Amino acid sequence: MTSRLKTGADLPRPIGLSSVQPDSVDDRAHGVALRWLVIERERHRLEDVWAATEAFMAKSYNWFALSDRERADHPAGQLMEALDRRIAKLGKRNERLLERLLRQPATTPGGIMACLQILAELVHPAENEEAHRLIRQITSALEVRAAAQ
């Protein structure tokens, strides 16, 4: 069980989904993209719970001084292991959804917006700050435009 503290706080958070509602049944990619975003939000939430649990255990119970066996036997260790499995399962599900999206492009404004939001999640600011900021700028402009219509 490796620490998620290194990555939990620096992950980008999903953009709000308020302006991204399904446009049409004709854009299957839109529904797939929305599912991806919901799953990713849940993954982030679970990673935050995992990190908070580890931080509490490290501070209160000297977690890192315990043996692997002691950590695995502790209820907090069992919770963290269950969270880890769930996070991995959600990650695999999103990988499959992303593969589907690559085969069926979005055809509506809402579908395109949802795909851009996925792109903003995938392009981490630490890896390419300019690209990430540009994607966020585009999605914000599209949200404003959609709200004005």
Rank of each mutant, 00 (worst) to 15 (best):
D10K: 15
R71F: 14
E70K: 09
R69H: 07
W50V: 03
A131C: 08
L37S: 01
P125I: 02
R86T: 15
A65F: 10
C115Y: 06
A29Y: 02
V25C: 12
G16N: 09
R136F: 06
A9T: 09
P109D: 00
I112K: 00
Q21F: 10
E99A: 14
R28Q: 06
A55E: 14
N62I: 05
G91H: 06
R69E: 11
G110E: 01
I87G: 00
R28N: 07
L102S: 06
P125V: 02
E70F: 03
W63A: 07
M57N: 12
H124E: 02
E95I: 12
W36R: 03
R93K: 15
Q104M: 08
L5S: 05
T107W: 01
I87S: 00
W36C: 05
L5N: 12
L34D: 03
E54R: 07
K6W: 08
T108R: 03
A55Q: 15
M57R: 14
T7I: 14
V123P: 00
I138E: 13
L102H: 14
A72M: 03
E99Q: 07
T139Y: 03
A58Q: 12
Q104W: 15
R41G: 09
A76L: 06
P109L: 03
G110I: 09
A9R: 13
H74Y: 01
L134N: 12
E99N: 12
V20P: 00
P14E: 14
E127A: 13
R96G: 04
R35K: 14
R136C: 12
A65L: 15
D27P: 04
D23P: 01
R45A: 13
E47T: 02
L66T: 11
A65I: 14
